[in-house]
Amino acid sequence: MKMPKIITKNLNLWYGKFHALKDVNACFEDKRITAIIGPSGCGKSTLLRVFNRMNDLIEGVKMKGEVLISGANMLAKEADLVNLRKKVGMVFQRPNPFPLSIYENIVFGEKIHAEKIKKSRLEEIVEKSLDSVLLWNELKDRLNKSALSLSLEQRQRLCIARLIAVKPDILLMDEPCSALDPQSTQRIEELMRELKKNYTIIIVTHNMQQAARVSDDAGFMLLGELIEFGRTDGIFTTPQDKRTEDYITGRYG
């Protein structure tokens, strides 16, 4: 069996006194889509933001346990956050391109990380990244237009392209479709299936149909605990825990 991409061991997280994650143990496998579902406030976004340490921006956050990404503990004191975030990219709930041109949005990461900036290299990155989110043909003639002139779906694709340009291994998606209409959602889901050939994807979603449609594995969270974790079809057809069953059948949420 392949080595899991991310392993959490007894992961606990507090916002001040609030215990937001309780002993989370899970394995996220490579080149698969894992969905984390659960009602609002259950800690699913918090869990996602542990993997790229975005919770660190919030004052009063405390974490305990281990998060092994490709074998290295990312909660260790000596963890290199810049390198971690290059390897673990994030797509946010609201498409959030910078108020710059399409081109500048995509080369942002390269400009930050490259020792020397070569124009030919930047152009190559723009084409490849836009191509991998199926935007190249649409946008190749207006790369210098503002990214804010795009539709919401195009913006979200652009954000994914901007991320891919940094060459991550893992894509974290925090409700990436909640601002989009059903058609756009469907197309982003198709894109996710395409992307999982090359990336490990973890998606947090409110939308259970989406989790069922798009994911290979799924975890159900409630009040900071990971109640159940396993193959998506298993979770959705034969949940082992009463609470998972209640949530999936819509008894609360």
Binding site: V82, N83, R85, G89, F92, F98, I112, R162, L163
Partner: peptide, 27 residues
């Protein structure tokens, strides 16, 4: 300057100073 700009920049691996210099200050 929206907090989300800072989050995105950091999530792409920019340091805090790079984020301020490249994203926050220009805006």
């Amino acid at each position: 300057v929206p907090q989300s700009f800072r989050e995105v920049s950091l999530s792409l691996g920019a340091s805090k100073w790079q984020t301020i210099k490249n994203i926050v200050l220009p805006n």
